[in-house]
């Protein structure tokens, strides 16, 4: 067995700790150790964006980070967007605009869009297109996702 390393982090406002193998990815840690299965894995090599979360405010691909690299960090995942029963406006806009079909890519788009709108409120259509250019959706053709993000405007 590989030696286990002790880590602590804040996820969606809650403190978590664990002992992990150094090779465990952050995505696997969130999904398997913390049961936060909203973060999805579509490629595990950094291209599809499904695993996007916020680490200390930055949108990152959690499949490319090791859990130990997030020691001490503050994280936000898709489960942290809504305020209890109340959907975050971005989530509501995704629902309303039918910005998802199978929904597998959705958490990654939501987190990417969240960071995008925070850094650049009310982006133009082409800014949104570029901004989500690192995320793959096979179902929607992107148009309703772009609509939902533009409609939300700010976060």
């Amino acid at each position: 067995m590989m030696p286990l390393i002790e880590i602590r982090m804040t996820v969606n406002g809650r403190e978590y700790g664990g002992r992990v193998e150094s090779r465990l990815t952050l995505a696997d840690f969130l999904r398997n150790e913390l049961n936060l299965t909203g973060t999805h894995l579509g490629c595990e090599h950094g291209v599809c964006g499904a695993c996007t979360i916020l680490v200390d405010g930055e949108a990152v691909r959690s499949c490319l980070l090791l859990a130990v690299q997030a020691d001490g960090a503050t994280l936000m995942t898709v489960e942290g967007l809504a305020d209890g029963d109340e959907l975050h406006p971005l989530q509501a806009a995704f629902q309303e605009n039918h910005a998802l079909q199978c929904g597998f890519c959705t958490p990654g788009f939501l987190m990417t869009a969240y960071a995008l709108l925070r850094d650049n409120p009310n982006p133009s259509e082409s800014e949104v297109r570029q901004g989500i250019g690192g995320n793959i959706c096979r179902c929607t053709g992107y148009a309703p996702i772009i609509r939902a993000i533009q409609q939300t405007g700010t976060v």
Partner: peptide, 18 residues
Amino acid sequence: ARPELARMVRGRGRFVDD
């Protein structure tokens, strides 16, 4: 209401790997 969408935007889908 599209209940399937509300679940998904909350990250509450249930896929095999979940």
